[in-house]
Computed example of a mutant assay.
Amino acid sequence: MRLNKIISHNTRYSRREADELIKKGLVKIDGKVVTDLATKASFEDKVSVDGKTLYEKSGYTVLVYNKPKGELVSKKDDRGRRTIYDSLPQKYSHYLSVGRLDYASEGLLLLCDSPSVVSALMHGDLERVYYVKINGEITPAMEEAMRLGLHAEDARRGGHSDSSIHAMDFAPFVDYRIIKSRPNFSTVKVTIREGKNRELRRFFGYFDTEVVDLKRVSYGIVDLGMLKPGKTRFLETNEYKALRDYISYTEEISD
C-alpha cells in the first residue's frame, strides 16, 4: 500500500498532508527516514510519523451520516468548498467514506475507521436505494433501460466536467417505482447495486434529462430512517451483526 495511504487511513492527516510530511522527512520506516512519495509499506514494517508509531486498527466502528447538499465527500477542496469533514466532529476526521455522494446529492453516507471494511462495502453488491427527481417525465425508453440495462457510448452528460469517463455500461436496476411522472418533473425510487461515478445522473443524462434532486435512503442493511440532515449515528447492534455476517460471507466466496 502507498505510504501516504497508510498514514491517511490511520491518522487525522489527508493523503496530501501525508505527502508533505514525507517530503519534510518526518516519516520513517523501520527507523529510516523516507522521502520518496512512491514508497510502499505495510504494517509488517514499523511506520512512524513525527516520532509516533502507527498501529493498524483491529476493531472498527461505522458511522451513519445524513449528508446535506452542498458538501463534498473529500478531506480537502482546492476551491474552498465545504466538505463533510468540516461538519463532522474532529474525532471522526480519520474516518473513511464508503463511496461518495456528489456535491449536489444528499442522504445516507457510511463512514468507517477500518480501510478493509470500507473496501469490502464499496466493492460488494449491497443494494443502494435512491429517490431521484428529474426535470421531465419518465419515458418508455427510460423504463426499458431500467429493466434491461444500457450501454451508453456517450455518458458524459450528468458526469463531472473534468471526468475522463465517456462510455458507461448501466446494469439493469434491481428495482424501481415511479412515484410521479409529469412533463415538468418526475420522481422515481430506484434500487441499484453498483453506484458507479455519478451513475444515476449519467443514466438520466443519456436521455437528455437532468437530475434535479438525488437522495440516498438506504445502503445494504442500513436505512436512513428519521436521521436529520447533518446528523450522525453509529450502527446498532443488529446492524453490526448483519455487517459482520456480510463480510464473512464475501470472504468465504472469494476464497
Score class of each variant (00 low, 15 high):
residue 108 L to D: 03
residue 108 L to R: 12
residue 108 L to M: 13
residue 108 L to V: 09
residue 108 L to P: 10
residue 110 L to V: 04
residue 110 L to I: 06
residue 110 L to Y: 00
residue 110 L to P: 02
residue 112 C to Y: 02
residue 112 C to V: 07
residue 113 D to T: 02
residue 115 P to D: 04
residue 116 S to E: 12
residue 116 S to M: 14
residue 116 S to I: 05
residue 117 V to P: 00
residue 118 V to I: 06
residue 120 A to I: 03
residue 123 H to Y: 10
residue 123 H to E: 04
residue 123 H to A: 05
residue 124 G to A: 03
residue 126 L to K: 03
residue 128 R to A: 03
residue 129 V to L: 07
residue 130 Y to N: 03
residue 131 Y to G: 05
residue 133 K to F: 14
residue 133 K to S: 05
residue 133 K to G: 03
residue 134 I to G: 11
residue 136 G to T: 04
residue 136 G to P: 09
residue 139 T to M: 13
residue 140 P to H: 07
residue 141 A to M: 12
residue 141 A to Y: 14
residue 143 E to D: 11
residue 144 E to S: 14
residue 144 E to G: 11
residue 144 E to D: 14
residue 145 A to P: 01
residue 145 A to G: 10
residue 148 L to G: 12
residue 148 L to V: 11
residue 149 G to K: 04
residue 150 L to V: 06
residue 151 H to N: 10
residue 152 A to E: 06
residue 152 A to Y: 08
residue 153 E to P: 05
residue 155 A to T: 08
residue 155 A to W: 13
residue 157 R to T: 07
residue 158 G to F: 01
residue 158 G to V: 10
residue 158 G to W: 00
residue 159 G to F: 10
residue 159 G to I: 09
residue 160 H to R: 12
residue 160 H to V: 12
residue 161 S to M: 15
residue 162 D to T: 15
residue 162 D to W: 15
residue 164 S to F: 13
residue 164 S to N: 10
residue 165 I to L: 10
residue 165 I to N: 08
